[in-house]
Amino acid sequence: MSELLASDPQPSVVDADFYRWLRDVPAVCAGPPDPDLRAVFEAFLYHEADLLDRREFGAWYDLFTDDGLYWVPIGDEADDPARAVSVAFDDHRRLGDRIAWMNTGNVYSHQPPSVTQRMISNVMVWAVDAQTALSRSAFTLHAYRRGVTDIFAGRYEHVLRMDDGRPTMIRMKKAVLIDRSSPLHNLTIIL
C-alpha cells in the first residue's frame, strides 16, 4: 500500500465508457435480491466498515480494484456524474490522494480525529455474473468529535468483485446520503 501511495500514481481509467457503465449500474438491481449471497456480503461490508471505524484507511484503500470508484453523489438520483459534482468522485488515483492527504497529519478537521461507528443493515444482494455482484444496504454513521456528534445516514451501493462465490474487492462504493441536498458538516469523514 505505502508504495502505491508514494508517488507517480497510475493514470485515471475514467473515460466515456466508465461513465456509461456507471449510468447502467442501477438497472441491474431489478428483481428480488439473492438470499444465498447475503451472509458473505454482510461479512464483507462489516469488515469494510470496521476498517474505517478503526481508521485503517490504507487497508480499506487496498480493497479497491485499480478501476474502482468511491462515490458520494449530491443532488438528484438522475444527475449524470459527468455533469454534476459529487462530495467525492474518487477514482483509484484520487482515492490514493485522499488517503495520502489524511496521512499527512495536517488535516485539521481530524485533529482530534472523529470517533466513528458505522451500522449497516437491510443488505440486499444481486448476482450479475460469476465475477460481479451488487448490493444495496442501509447505513448510519455516528461521528463524535470535540463534544458534538454528527449523524450521517443513507444507502450504500456496492459493486463487488466475486472470487469463488465470495466478494473480495470493491469495484464501486456509492454512499447516498439522505440529506445530501442540505449543507453538510465535516465531510472529510469517509462514509
Binding site: R83, V107, Y108, S109, N186, T188
Partner: peptide
Amino acid sequence: EVVNELRMRIAEDFPNFGEVDDFE
C-alpha cells in the same frame, strides 16, 4: 462535453482537500 466533464472533476478538488482545513 469532455471539457465540461473535466470541470466537474476539477471542482471536486479544492472543497475536498483545501476548504475543509480553512473551515476547521
